[in-house]
């Protein structure tokens, strides 16, 4: 695949170490994400998948190693810079409990835009369009407590994509859903990401979910192996 090797990696982690107290959550993990691709991160429970995702997204700072995003090293950036980066370039979907219960679904989706300074009216108009696109336009006015788990996840996906991120990080986005709903969320997520050109880093332990990826990497005992093969 000569085309791929020519593409400059969007996000590249090398030899990342991260410890919590005496637990080494990451012990030399590496990962490369290219623009527009969907990478699944797999591995047994407790192997450090979520930690890797947090390091890649600049939510936590790696103890050592490099996390380069478009030529800049996240590990040397200040908290402020990383926050700004997450605001403008990244989107997030988690397993559950990520929507602000007091806000309506529409307002929840509008948050990233409003954090970036978009006016409320415009932000909510764009949020509405994304809800339609993810087939949850009808719950726009409801609060997260009043919608189903699958609908809630699709709202969360809309929120992750609304600000036009270059990378969407998803940690077990279907973990709390049945297979039909889970696949629906995955289909919508990957289609939308493909349309907008966003890359997706997808942590999951479900093979059928990982099957929506272009490529997977396996994390074991804090070490990751990129199975991207030269074939």
């Amino acid at each position: 695949m000569s085309a791929e090797t020519l593409t400059e990696p969007l996000l590249q982690a090398t030899d990342v170490h991260k410890s919590y107290g005496r637990t080494a959550a990451l012990d030399g993990a590496a990962l490369t994400v290219r623009a527009g691709e969907v990478v699944a991160v797999m591995g047994p429970s407790g192997s450090g998948k979520s930690t890797l995702l947090h390091c890649l997204a600049g939510i936590v700072r790696a103890d050592s190693g490099q996390v380069r995003y478009r030529g800049r090293d996240l590990t040397t950036m200040s908290d402020r810079e990383r926050s700004a980066l997450r605001r403008t370039d990244f989107g997030f979907v988690f397993q559950f409990g990520q929507l602000v219960p007091e806000l309506t679904c529409l307002e929840n989706v509008a948050i990233p835009l409003r954090l970036a300074g978009t006016r409320r009216r415009d932000a909510e108009a764009r949020a509405g369009a994304w809800l339609e696109r993810l087939e949850v336009g009808d719950v726009a006015g409801q609060r997260p407590g009043e919608v189903s788990g699958g609908q809630g996840q699709r709202v969360a996906v809309a929120r992750a994509l609304v600000a036009g991120p270059r990378v969407v990080f998803a940690d077990e986005p279907t973990g709390a859903l049945d297979s039909l709903n889970g696949e629906r969320v995955m289909r919508l997520l990957t289609e939308a990401a493909h349309d907008t050109g966003a890359a997706v880093v997808l942590v999951t332990h479900e093979a059928r979910v990982a099957a929506y990826s272009d490529r997977e990497i396996v994390v074991r005992d804090g070490k990751s192996r990129d199975t991207e093969r030269v074939s």
Partner: peptide
């Protein structure tokens, strides 16, 4: 043996991706 399992997993996933694509 772990490598063996890993490459087998990769192979499985490759096929699953194909099926997933065909499905859609």
């Amino acid at each position: 043996a772990a490598d063996l399992l890993d490459s087998q997993r990769a192979e499985h996933l490759r096929l699953m991706r194909e099926l997933t694509r065909r499905k859609s």
